[in-house]
Design a protein around this nucleic acid. Structure first.
Lengths: 164, 164
DNA sequence: CCAGACCGTTTGCAATTGCAAGCAGTGCGG
DNA sequence: CCGCACTGCTTGCAATTGCAAACGGTCTGG
């Protein structure tokens, strides 16, 4: 049983890491695990414990739960994977807001996930720090959301960027 | 160095087991782990891997996530809302997509409704379809979402979600 | 050309997980 | 009394995790 079929989890981690444009060693350092071990995990040669998984999730700044689901450590149905249901059940949203969120979510789900083809990014980030601190959402984007947001009409988008 | 500080998880398991009124061996059998190992886990002498934890959760017929939280493997961040939790747990989304959805959701939440009160219970008894007359999202809107959607530069938004 | 700094990978090894086997204690019926 | 079934616990041992050290490769620059 030494053949772990956890390939997906390793691939998932590697995808997330490359998407974040950080090197294996950087992630290993951020996650507090050794570089060789992370290498083996990414290639599916080792089955990381949940503790390591959790640290990696932190290093990647992604949800631990998503990682656990990928690792098969949490049953899919156990997670409220039904985002739409959650949105529908949220009483704090207006009906218009719900519709917008659901539409965006479904459009995301339709976007096929390319198998890690980052053609657009540089192959070598080099010594230059690649701190992609892009703001979560540009103001104009949120401004475009407003008319769809609520019926209040009070256009007040408080998206203060707490950039230190 | 085997400082067993993981007592809480073991105690939690033991509590759940005793609450279910089943013996240690029964739970071990149901969970597919050996009885001595389960004994050691319950007394905090061993730190079970997530796989074992998952099996024990199944044997106890409780949520794996609750167990992971107890084990400190999932941040017990107070869940801001079910929507955010659902988004975070959705493994089908990319990290960027998650960020966008959460940002939009939170920006919606910030648009305070003048008389909205955050009562714990749902204010809407039936949030059923409100027959929105207007189209959910213009194409240009979804087009603006694309760069935030996935890593690929595949510019294709098929907005055919709505019933035709 | 070679030193230096990265990258990911390979190789042994200490520490740990997780289990099979066996040990003590309790309650039942013959 | 003795066997039997049940409870949970202790003891070695194979298999695995996870790491430190070292390896080969690419790129920069003096």
């Amino acid at each position: 049983m030494a053949l772990p079929k956890v390939g997906s989890i390793g691939e998932y981690i590697r995808e997330q890491r490359q998407q974040a444009k950080i090197s294996l060693r950087q992630l290993a350092s951020a996650a507090g695990v050794s570089n060789p071990y992370l290498s083996q995990i990414e290639r599916g040669l080792r089955k990381p414990s949940a503790e390591i998984l959790n640290q990696i999730a932190k290093g990647l700044q992604i949800s631990s739960q998503a990682l656990y689901v990928q690792a098969g450590l949490i049953e899919d149905r156990e997670t409220p994977s039904d985002v739409v249901t959650a949105i529908r059940a949220d009483a704090h949203l207006s009906e218009r807001q719900r519709q917008v969120l659901i539409d965006i979510y479904e459009s995301f789900r339709k976007e096929k996930h390319p198998e890690d083809e980052q053609t657009s990014q540089k192959a070598h980030p080099r010594g230059d720090s690649v701190t992609d601190d892009e703001p979560p959402l540009p103001e104009e984007f949120l401004a475009a959301l407003e008319p769809y947001a609520a019926s209040g009409g009070n256009g007040t988008v408080n998206q203060e960027t707490k950039e230190g």
